[in-house]
């Protein structure tokens, strides 16, 4: 669709930091290219900046809010400030966009996932260094210092049996409150009852 997202060389870390910060303080949407996206841009507005992670209001089709995204700063290659559709957003949407229903501590993957799990009944996450282009959708049931056990919803919108381990260190992206996960969750229905007994080896298959 957009003709303006041609991949180019990376912006400097300084420029990226400056633009992300302006997006947040001046309410200017940004187009972000990360190192996994093959030049495809993601549009959003920066709502919070952590040292290693950022929280974005996702914007689709130039003028519609579509949930929230949390990205790793070190994966961001290019940032472009783009105020083109701010007048449209001001007129047609809540502006500036509302913050998520609860606070999200962007300190680490562990704090992010714990907070997102409190706010959203399901979320999307990606481990792009391991699996570029793939995302998973689910809800966490247990966690420890280094990992979370997540019950997944399959692409056919059914809950998977058992939970799978997701290491915090592998996390590159989280999304929640978006239209896709809302539809998948609606079709899958509530998560089947999850036993309180510790799962021995839930990820084995």
């Amino acid at each position: 669709m957009p003709l303006w997202g041609v991949p180019k060389s990376s912006h400097s870390r300084k420029k990226i930091a400056r633009r992300l910060s302006r997006s947040q303080t001046e309410c200017i949407p940004v187009e972000i290219v990360d190192r996994f996206s093959d030049g495809e841009t993601r549009t959003g507005l920066v709502l919070a900046l952590g040292e290693d992670w950022i929280l974005l209001q996702s914007i689709r089709d130039a003028g519609f809010y579509d949930g929230y995204a949390i990205l790793r700063r070190k994966d961001i290659r290019r940032v472009r400030l783009r105020d083109t559709f701010v007048p449209y957003l001001r007129e047609h949407r809540e502006w500036p966009p509302p913050l998520p229903a609860g606070e999200i501590n962007l300190a680490s993957a562990a704090t992010i996932l714990a907070d997102v799990a409190r706010i959203a009944s399901v979320f999307i996450f990606a481990e792009e260094r391991r699996r570029p282009g793939a995302v998973w959708l689910g809800t966490p049931v247990e966690w420890d210092a280094r990992a979370m056990w997540i019950v997944m919803i399959n692409p056919d919108c059914t809950w998977e049996d058992g939970a799978r381990e997701a290491l915090f260190t592998n996390l590159t992206q989280v999304e929640f409150g978006d239209d896709y996960s809302r539809a998948v969750h609606a079709v899958a229905g509530p998560m089947p009852a999850w036993g309180s007994e510790p799962s021995e080896d839930p990820a084995s298959e």
């Binding site: 793939a134 998973w136 997701a166 998948v184 990820a203």
Partner: peptide, 16 residues
Amino acid sequence: MGEVAIAACHVPLWGV
């Protein structure tokens, strides 16, 4: 362990 299996992954629409 530590591997999220590919089976449950949601591939973007253009992955067909």
